[in-house]
Measured scan of single mutants.
Amino acid sequence: MFYPNSPQTSPQLTQIPYGQQYAMMQRQIQQPYHPFATTEPQARLYPYHYQGPIQQEQGGFITQQSTAASPQYVQMRVTPVDQSIMSGYPNQTANGSSSSSFNYNIHPQQQQQQQQQQQQLRHHAMPVGSVPLQDDRYRKQLIVNYLAPDVTSTDLHELFSRFGELDGARIIYDKQTNMSKGYGFVYFCHAEDAKEAVERMSGYEFHGKWLKVGYSTNPLNIVPSNSSPYVHAGSRGAAG
């Protein structure tokens, strides 16, 4: 039997160049792979992502010199942007860049009308829970959420009447099932009393439920100042 490094198959040491006398086997001759043993700084910083320098080929596509990437890492192929796409944008300079302001050559009167329309939209648009300043009635009506099913309009009136005089209180019921929808409205005579009720009743436990109280901004629920107070009856038909 002959071994790869046996004296019968191995040459004389004098015939082997210096430095390879003890590297006779194939696994010894093959050098191990060192990912950080390279002179390129990109490979030292990113050993798993770097795959060699990027070269520009004919046709405008950018390719990489090395083989496919590892399945664990996804390499994105980048193509140059066609400058003709950006030619339609206004205020574009000769080098292809555009300024931040756009001039669509709008007539001054049209621009003024658009600004007025935007101001009107901001004036009428009102986020949930906010209180408008032009109508004091919005500051007097509250919406009470997360009410228990057994709470009546009379219970709601008695709960909030300790903060001040009320114009009314009612629970909203479903017309088909005649069941409470879980929320109601309270109408105060003074805005200061309503503000105190919002601050003190939010998070209050009532009939096993934690109440959420806020201003009601729905104009359909506003009680006119010259109208008669609501009837605080315990029956659902009268309260709904």
Rank of each mutant, 00 (worst) to 15 (best):
P4Y: 15
N5S: 06
S6G: 14
S10R: 10
S10L: 10
L13M: 13
Q15V: 14
G19E: 10
G19Y: 11
Q20W: 15
A23K: 02
Q28Y: 13
H34M: 14
F36G: 07
T38E: 04
E40K: 03
P41S: 04
A43V: 14
P47A: 13
Y48K: 02
Y50L: 09
Q51H: 13
G52V: 13
G59F: 15
T67H: 12
A68M: 07
A68I: 13
A68L: 10
A69Q: 08
Y73N: 06
V74R: 01
R77E: 02
T79D: 12
P80I: 10
P80E: 06
V81S: 08
V81L: 04
V81E: 07
D82Y: 15
I85Y: 06
M86R: 05
G88L: 13
Y89L: 06
N91I: 13
T93C: 10
N95E: 04
S97N: 10
S98N: 04
Y104W: 11
Y104G: 04
Q114G: 12
Q117G: 07
Q119T: 05
Q120P: 11
H124V: 10
M126W: 11
M126Y: 12
P127L: 09
V131K: 05
P132M: 04
D135I: 02
Y138S: 11
R139M: 10
L142D: 01
I143L: 01
V144L: 03
N145E: 00
N145Y: 02
N145M: 01
Y146K: 00
L147W: 02
D150V: 05
D150G: 09
L156T: 06
H157Q: 08
H157S: 05
E158M: 14
F160V: 04
G164M: 01
L166V: 02
G168S: 03
R170K: 06
R170Q: 00
I172W: 00
I172L: 02
I172S: 00
K175F: 08
T177P: 03
S180V: 10
S180C: 03
S180G: 03
S180W: 09
K181I: 01
K181L: 02
G182E: 00
A191P: 14
E196I: 12
A197L: 01
A197C: 06
R200L: 12
M201D: 00
S202C: 11
S202T: 10
G203M: 01
G203T: 00
Y204C: 03
Y204I: 06
E205T: 11
L211F: 01
V213D: 00
V213G: 00
S216K: 00
S216T: 03
T217Q: 02
N218F: 00
N218Y: 00
N221T: 08
V223N: 05
P224I: 05
P224N: 08
N226A: 07
S227Q: 04
S228V: 07
A233T: 06
A238G: 13
A238P: 13
G240N: 14
